[in-house]
Design a protein around this nucleic acid. Structure first.
Lengths: 200, 200
DNA sequence: CCATCAACTTGACAGTGTAAAGATCATCAT
DNA sequence: ATGATGATCTTTACACTGTCAAGTTGATGG
């Protein structure tokens, strides 16, 4: 029998239960929302007993961390793919990434919510979540880099852009602001974003 | 005995239990975070049995709605107070409101999180939450009004400003963006906000 | 072939939200 | 004033959740 690589651990009874549990979590999250996601349901959907996840995650918080980390990976992939689809020009790339940001939030609202809820108390307990989140941020930071004025900290532009698109993403999910006051379309937010060019 | 007004309903055994439960929720939220908030603990803190809240709220979701509504009222009050403290000038007023926005998120992080989590699936089940949220939005909208270009929809500027400050508020709570990449100070975000003047 | 140990199951426990039924008390029509 | 009514709250019970402890299974290594 072929001996597996010593680095990718394969479960004995179940084939890679850890991945199956994360996948089950994503399925439940998409189907029943955050309220329908529980450790026991993930275990049941993966076909194992309710106590099995304890051997792969540090409690329910650990499972949520892993699901959120997977979400950030999907998130970064989606932004990179959308950016690669357009022309290789700084502004087009930045706007493509912003559009991918909104689209992801729209396509996976509960996952999007979970991601930023788990990354909230950034205690660094989960290294996996930290690196996945940092990678997603890195995609945005790279797109901002051409707009950083020489001699200034890149964090300034990054903070401005990230704040704008993240805030808009949650507003777009809510759908409206006040009484019969709809959220403006994406283009109006991108218009504000284009003002960044003036600073360079 | 003085007959109470027929409009403010007074509990028979407990004096206005509904308000007490909301207050208990705010206390638990501030002390133990969102994880330490439960219907039973609110009831215990208010000195009633665990089933008492059912007569005042529609399940735990109803209680959370009421707590979030109270949060939005506190939120609107805080912004108005901060705006009233400064000079009565459009830009100063808008910036004061933004600062109050950040300060509120910093001072009540778990409540802030709960507010926008409850307002998320805006099904309109809670009229109380709807009006409280609309009032908070109205404070910001009024501050944006002087910057609305004539002939354009006010929702555009409102969406831009709200997106920017809300996104920054959640980033300020997280505290950092990527690996050793701190969030830029508030002033840098207000700098972007000042670009709105050019449009008028 | 047996010892070892990780993966998983079973069973139990405290805590949660919710529903049903009963007790208590203010209010109101008679 | 007096009894009926109905809201308020309690008690009890149940399903579900996460977590822990003990036992079972099965693959691996000496």
């Amino acid at each position: 029998m072929p001996q597996e690589s010593s680095i990718d651990r394969v479960s004995h009874h179940h084939g890679n239960l850890r991945e199956a549990l994360i996948g089950a979590g994503l399925t439940l999250l998409a189907r029943d929302g955050i309220a329908g996601l529980s450790l026991r349901k993930c275990a049941a959907l993966a076909g194992v007993s309710h106590a099995a996840p304890a051997h792969h995650f540090d409690g329910v918080a650990g499972l949520l961390d892993a699901i959120a980390a997977r979400g950030f990976t999907m998130f970064a992939d989606a932004m990179e793919e959308e950016a690669a689809r357009g022309p290789d020009e700084p502004r087009a790339r930045l706007e493509a990434i912003c559009l991918a940001y909104f689209d992801f939030a729209k396509a996976h609202p509960d996952l999007f919510d979970l991601m930023f809820r788990q990354v909230w108390p950034l205690g660094g307990k989960s290294e996996e979540l930290g690196v996945a989140g940092a990678r997603a941020y890195g995609v945005l930071a790279a797109a901002c880099e051409p707009f950083v004025p020489p001699g200034t900290a890149p964090g300034v532009i990054e903070t401005q852009v990230w704040s704008l698109i993240h805030g808009y993403a949650v507003l777009a999910l809510v759908g409206k602001l006040g009484r019969n006051r709809p959220v403006a379309p994406v283009g109006d937010v991108l218009a504000l974003l284009r003002r960044l060019d003036l600073q360079a």
